[in-house]
Design a protein around this nucleic acid. Structure first.
Lengths: 129, 129, 129, 129
DNA sequence: GTGGTCTAGACCACG
DNA sequence: GTGGTCTAGACCACC
């Protein structure tokens, strides 16, 4: 699983990790009982401090996405359908915010639709990211 | 000018203000030599700390979007066309990131187009956002 | 509010803090919008590291017991009746475990009842602890 | 002898084992020169790691509760009356702590007595725990 | 090797 | 002053 981080973002690193893994679980990229990379390994891989990873995993555990056993590591728990829908609505809202911004730049409805359409095409042309 | 703040966001308040005013200038909603609300007034209006507003204005001045003269307050400088296009590309990128996420949730190209289309319609129906 | 800690316990310090404050909220010792001691102050008072306090407060916030505002500090949110009952059941279970242990020490039902009765009397005689 | 483990407890597994066996010895459920289950067998039975069992037995030996001879395994040593009383007092203290907590939840003396009474009855009704 | 806790100290945003 | 994030490194329990 690939975790892309933006260290210059305002979103704290641990939250970026949480969201990435959350999404991977909700989208079934990570399935029940799949193992997560170990705290130390992931820390090394993304050049972060183990504590930061630990915090991300701790949050994921609090939210019920994963469980951990001493000496075994973290594994994904069974996801709930509900969170899946919630996440989609969240994405919709973010999308809406962008469209509003675009509309303020005096782009017409048709221009925005064209723009978004092109982006969707582009994403699917680039292959199944 | 309407500034909507999300106090629960990870993006610091002063950056949200900077971006909103930046966008207002780029979209010509605010024109050259228009006056910005006073630090105190804006602070009162959006229930933020005056220090936060002052910081936002300071950043805008550093970036060349506004200028200030003692006694007259802050006014907008002349915007450059270049930033306008850059901002749009930025929005496109954010949009692309969301579409990619949606595609990972195994939504088809058509479903995503439909979804985005509906959102665009909704935004324009809601009127002058 | 008094937080008694046992640094030799197996229960991590941050969990002891969480439980103490949880109980204070559930028992209405701490009321809605009451302020918690600041992270740094509590850390100093109980001679712990600020990070440890921060972790405890973070957990309390995740559980919905408290909220925080930048520059203001932590305050207690409105507790739910449900957690109150849950906590009592938890106490009952712990009590049951102890009684079971006592019964294994070949104490009779009457002896145990007498013993517990005496303890209850003692607690209430010592004053409203 | 039944050893019930709580893998979600903060008390390390080896300590839970130590205490259970200690109690069995103090309550004369295990008598002088009785043999303890082999490290491997117990490990298998309670699904713990042999290292964990070995550590528990080592602690018990350090405390003088058991002795070991190569080839015969671990056997219980003679218990002292003193520890028995100490253990009971320990249980009393834990009980007292719970009662104090309950009293903080604004339960009256009578309510607590009733509650504890019921629990004692329940334990004895459930039979040979 | 695994996770979990804790300490110490730095830097940022907000009031 | 407040909380929040992150780094660095130690020690423990468990596999």
């Amino acid at each position: 699983m690939h975790i892309s981080l933006d260290y210059h973002s305002d979103v704290p690193v641990y939250k970026q990790i949480v969201r990435t893994i959350e999404d991977a679980i909700l989208s079934s990229e990570l399935k029940k009982d799949d193992g997560l990379p170990s705290v130390r390994k992931l820390a090394f891989d993304i050049k972060a401090n183990p504590n930061t990873i630990a915090k991300a995993y701790f949050v994921l555990q609090s939210k019920g996405y994963v469980y951990s056993k001493p000496g075994i590591g973290y594994r994904v728990a069974s996801p709930s359908k509900r969170s899946f829908e919630e996440r989609l609505e969240e994405l919709d809202k973010t999308l809406e915010r962008i469209v509003i911004k675009m509309s303020r730049f005096s782009l017409s409805k048709e221009e925005i639709k064209k723009r978004t359409s092109e982006i969707v095409e582009k994403v699917f042309d680039d292959g199944c990211n």
